[in-house]
Amino acid sequence: MRYFVKRVGQSLLTIVSVVVFTFVMIRQMPGGPLAYIRAQVMQSRGADSIDMAELSKLSVDYMNYSVNDPIHVQLFNYTAQILQGDLGRSFNYGEPVGEIILKSAPWTIFLLTISIILTFAIGILLGAVMAYQEGERFDTAWTGVSMFLNSVPYFVAALLFVYVFAIQLSWFPASGNVASNLDSALTPQYVSSVLYHATLPIASLVLTGFGGIALGMRGNAIKEIGEEYIRVAHLRGVPGRRIAIRYVGRNAVLPLYTQFMISVGFMFGGSVILEQIFAYPGLGYYLLEGINARDYPLMMGIFIVITVAVVACILFADLTYGMIDPRVSDEASREAY
């Protein structure tokens, strides 16, 4: 219970520090959002007259803080608004940032969920088989392949896939998330179009990702197979299948949990590049659009949302870890030297 409170508190602390950090960053930006808002006011009212009231109103509307307040009040309002779910209004699209995010987030989540599940499923299975075949041809070959795939960046794979399968062979679409003539409804046609468009992005993440997981799983499983209790289990006559799954499998998968947490952050971050390559309208795509157009509310909003998503995933993984591995307790040795 103490652990639960501590972890939740830490996650909240992370989110608040990220919000504060974005606030500081916005103010550091060259040009900055204020220049944009000032230009807007000037445009509507003629060159010289800057109406402070209007400036303040616009800045509250777009950025969640008023330029006329002292800086700590600005920070407080900004943080408070964001924690209430109001992320400001996009300069470029004119819509509230929240709506853009609601529109794009499902696509990113869809893409990443499938990719992560496939990466780990393939990696764990392959790694386990490799461990059981240690030293044989299957193991040597796949260790080599895994190391090679592990050193290909996902975006290089993505670019190559676009070149080969989309441009040259025209087997898959090069961009977009769904055929433009379909209405969004749960018809078989729509679903298959979505999957068809997602194939290349998912393939580039999975193919470059599973090698690392397989190597990790292989190492853990080999270590586990060499343990005494496995030998004892064999001597006790426990069936091989049971040993492989319940004894070796369980214990070898546990350390991968940490790798899973890192993968979540890595893939969410990587979506910026991946969605750009495939022009896939998810969070990462809009984040980069926001950055290129210097659309501060949009980029900050998406940055905060991505961080919250990653923090939530990690918190969930952390809190459920104790259920899978009962050995984890409140770290005992905390004596200070």
Partner: peptide
Amino acid sequence: MTIPGLPLVIL
């Protein structure tokens, strides 16, 4: 560790 690296780097 939890702040996603690439967006942070871009900022």
